[in-house]
Design a protein around this nucleic acid. Structure first.
Length: 560
RNA sequence: GCGUUCGUAGUUCAGCUGGAUAGAGCGUCAGACUUCGAAUCUGAAUGUCGGGGGUUCGAAUCCCUCCGAACGCACCA
């Protein structure tokens, strides 16, 4: 537990103690201590920490919050808490002012922990899987996938920082109807490129990339497959194209800073019989019935709006059936929690997937789905409908080429997944130098620059002493130190809420506080002790900026 | 029609389990480089938190209702 978290916990404990003491002394009574908070007030004048304990006790104690506050203050043991002053304010808040001396400990804490600063252990080594992107291998990655990739990867890093054992996974939909469609589209393109008369299938994939794939293939094998039996021809084309598409997807994601632990094939679930055995399991439990020749899952028993088909009347399993088998497989692999990142257009799928897990005897709460609102593409001030089938979309590759990996990842992680993002490529291109990511990266480069110059001046890297660190007493320095002390709590909250965007906000704030400090105080001053103290501060800030950018998958440049 | 998510400054967006006077970036206006990086900083202006009702000592946050938007409601995935 971090220094700051320790202090807060100690004060919380002492507050509980104080309430119990008062109760014992008969000064007021309560059955059970209600939940209360100890937090940093927004207004600086309200001190460093404030609690609402007196207010939440008021009802049970049948006394006014301010009276209760006065009694509590009387009983609070402040030893070891750094509390310097306590006062009653407003409706009955108790505000604490801490001695600023505790802050200097933060620097030592950061420098000691290094790249591990910010690590907390709410995960306690639990195994979590984060499945994200899982784009259909029938085309290139687009903006929506980019958002999913930025969110999923950063969430995985965040959870790792919070003490979970995390596995990143990509589910490859390489089976089913869409693959059949894909095959027909490829076949048509192949024949067309060779001058044959071939009709493009209804609902086929119109993307230009498909034509490129076929052209590439033709330079290798020519018209060899024109005269081959269609079934074999399609199988060959699909295998070739899927292989190429998946290689492209892997490389693109890797360039976007995303590295998966597992690439999972849907086809393997069919091959291994997992889909069939899962359906049999559900049938044995009585959750499957037949109607109009198809097999249905009674998902309404688990809160779904309607029952769902799992086996079509033609005997083929639906995508849903395979997905149930897939999620069962995840739990069988021993994950305590499984997180999926889905586009908001899949929200109808959530209830039935959780329902299916309940039916199989798993706790549906261990399957958590983060729904990400869609990314809308704006062109010439109008919304452009993106779709793989229409072939009209901006690819992740184009996005990286135009605005860069760092700007793109920061852009997406600055937003709550629940908010719809309008993305205007022209605007993004024009404003890319205004992207907030550069504000943070600039802070990092500036921090590095100071350290470089200190080194050139022959400044030793000797750490500042406790006494020297206590000379960091300007309000700019203290604000900065407090923010630095806050990182472990931020990680805890962000991990609990599964919201990496909180860290993007955090590091923006931190960078801002640093820039303010930089403009008001000089680091490389004559006074050796003070210089050592400020250099230690600079080193610590640099470490934190680097750590947080790391979680967000954004690089921390030493110069720019 | 039913369901999910959303509606906060001119604009793009933050705002954990309800807390005190709702915050940033961009834009606008006024300032700061012979000194560690001006991709920076300082200051100013800007709001019926979509409307209405309710719960509460206290609501942008929870509940109801209305309005508006996006997305779902296939033997597609």
């Amino acid at each position: 537990m971090s220094l700051y978290e320790n202090i807060k916990e100690k004060i919380m404990d002492n507050l509980v103690q104080a309430a119990n003491t008062a109760k014992g002394a008969g000064e007021f009574s309560f059955e059970e201590l209600p939940a209360f908070v100890l937090e940093e007030p927004r207004e600086r004048q309200h001190g460093d920490l404030a609690t609402n304990l007196a207010m939440v006790l008021a009802k049970q104690a049948k006394r006014s919050p301010r009276d209760i506050a006065a009694i509590l203050i009387k009983h609070i043991d402040t030893t070891g808490t750094w509390i310097e002053a306590s006062e009653i304010a407003g409706a009955g808040f108790i505000n604490f002012r801490l001695s600023p001396l505790w802050l200097t400990g933060v620097i030592e804490e950061v420098l000691k922990a290094g790249e591990n600063y910010g690590q907390v252990d709410i995960g306690k080594g639990q195994k979590i899987q984060v499945e994200f992107v899982s784009a259909n291998p029938t085309g290139l990655l687009h903006m929506g996938n980019a958002r999913g990739a930025a969110l999923g990867d950063s969430l995985a890093s965040l959870l790792t920082m919070a003490g979970y054992e995390v596995s990143r996974e990509f589910y490859i939909n390489d089976a089913g109807n869409q693959i059949h469609n894909f095959a027909l589209s490829l076949e048509a393109r192949y024949l067309q490129q060779l001058g044959q008369d071939a009709a493009f299938p209804e609902g086929g994939y119109h993307g230009e990339d498909l034509i490129e794939t076929v052209k590439g293939l033709i330079t290798k094998i020519g018209d060899k497959y024109v005269s081959v039996e269609p079934g074999l021809r399609r199988e060959f084309l699909v295998r070739y194209a899927l292989d190429e598409k998946m290689r492209n997807i892997r490389e693109t994601l890797q360039d976007f800073g995303v590295n998966y632990d597992v690439w999972f094939n849907e086809q393997s679930l069919h091959d291994s019989g997992a889909v069939r055995s899962t359906m049999e399991e559900l049938e044995k439990k009585g959750y499957i019935y037949e109607k109009e020749g198809a097999h249905w899952l009674k998902s309404t028993l688990f809160g779904d709006e309607k029952d769902e088909v799992v086996i079509r009347s033609n005997g083929a399993p639906t995508y849903f059936a395979a997905d149930i088998a897939y999620h069962r497989n995840k739990f069988e692999r021993g994950f305590n929690r499984v997180i999926n990142i889905w586009g908001a257009d899949h929200h109808g799928h959530v209830a039935r997937m959780k329902g299916a897990m309940s039916a199989l005897g798993y706790d549906p709460d261990n399957l958590q789905v983060i729904l990400m609102q869609l990314v809308r593409l704006i062109q010439n001030g109008e919304v452009v409908k993106m779709s793989k089938r229409s072939g009209q979309y901006i690819t992740l590759r184009e996005l990286m080429d135009e605005v860069g990996k760092d700007a793109a990842r920061f852009f997406f992680n600055l937003r709550d997944p629940d908010s719809t993002v309008d993305f205007d490529m022209d605007l993004a291109r024009a404003q890319s130098s205004d992207n907030p990511v550069y504000y943070v990266q600039y802070a990092h480069a500036r921090l590095c620059s100071i350290l470089r110059q200190a080194e050139e001046m022959g400044d030793t890297t000797a750490p500042a002493s406790e006494l020297e660190l206590q000379r960091l007493e300007s309000s700019e320095e203290r604000d900065l130190l407090k923010k630095m002390a806050d990182l472990p709590s931020e990680i805890t909250i962000a991990a609990r809420l599964m919201e990496p965007h909180r860290l993007a906000r955090y590091v923006l704030d931190l960078a801002g506080l640093f820039h303010t400090f930089y403009n008001s105080q000089r680091v490389l001053v004559e006074d050796e002790g003070l210089r050592r103290a400020r250099l230690s501060l600079v080193r610590a800030v640099r470490q934190i900026v680097s750590n947080v950018l790391g979680i967000l998958g954004v690089s921390a440049p030493e110069r720019m």
